[in-house]
Design a protein around this nucleic acid. Sequence first.
DNA 1: TTATACTCTATAAAGTGGGTCGACTTTGTC
DNA 2: GACAAAGTCGACCCACTTTATAGAGTATAA
Lengths: 152, 152
Amino acid sequence: MLTKKAKYGLKAMVHLAGVRPGETALVADIAASNQIPKKFLDAILGELRNAGFVHSKKGKGGGYMLARPPEDIGVGNIVRALDGPLAPIQCASKTVYRRCDDCVDETRCAVRLVMLRARDAIAEVLDKTSLEQMRRMAAGDDSVRLLVGAAL
Amino acid sequence: MLTKKAKYGLKAMVHLAGVRPGETALVADIAASNQIPKKFLDAILGELRNAGFVHSKKGKGGGYMLARPPEDIGVGNIVRALDGPLAPIQCASKTVYRRCDDCVDETRCAVRLVMLRARDAIAEVLDKTSLEQMRRMAAGDDSVRLLVGAAL
DNA sequence: TTATACTCTATAAAGTGGGTCGACTTTGTC
DNA sequence: GACAAAGTCGACCCACTTTATAGAGTATAA
């Protein structure tokens, strides 16, 4: 389950992908246009800054901007930064694997084996979608519409 | 993210799929062999009973048993019963759809469009896996091994 | 001095787990 | 048969941790 933190973070990133390169956006503006509680968004953007996804500038005329062009930012990595691994369960994660305490023989844990497949399916979607693609979806670009409707 | 409730619930269901048809398993036994806190498992099995997945019998010789043969029980539905919809976000769910408050134009919400694809990918995996297949994985059946390794 | 990001503290809900007792069913035993 | 005892599920209350949010105040740049 995606937490609201990640949901808000993604919306904010899409918003930032929409401002002209080199310009900044204010937290208050991002919050207002996306219906996000401002204080919560403060914390979220702070995390995204620590994770290196965005840059911030203090004082008058300050704000946030993307650290890299949106084509180079994968949706999966944004979610990982805010919500942790994509895998539904820790022992099925490839980026932040951790053995689970209850589980004698991991290679025969049916739950883990199924969730490994689920993780792969999720990663296939999220890691192959860039922030730029999300920006185009939000803008109503028809070429991405096709991509959205694509079956597996 | 799969909660521990669903994880424990799945393990218990796999355990129940392993007992001979017509026989019951004790909560205490299921808890011990799967390293699950017994009281927590009590509550989980209670929910699974209310949802119609298992039957319970009190008194000596009592315990839990599956309500249907394991081939007829989909993993996705067990997860839904315990953790709610598979979709990472409510507005991307097909079984329990709910509009999200923050979101002016749903058809252009990039987060929702991406998460719809993620939901489909997850459902594809979980709804096409039966409890019987999980039981075989746990038993080390090689024919399911192949299924597990199958690429998308 | 003003606009802005940043920090600290606090609150309510949900997830996770434990402890205690009650209700129901079987199994004796007289 | 009747009644006691034991085994088993079931329900209630408590506590701690993580999410989600708000408020007040601090630091920094123009």
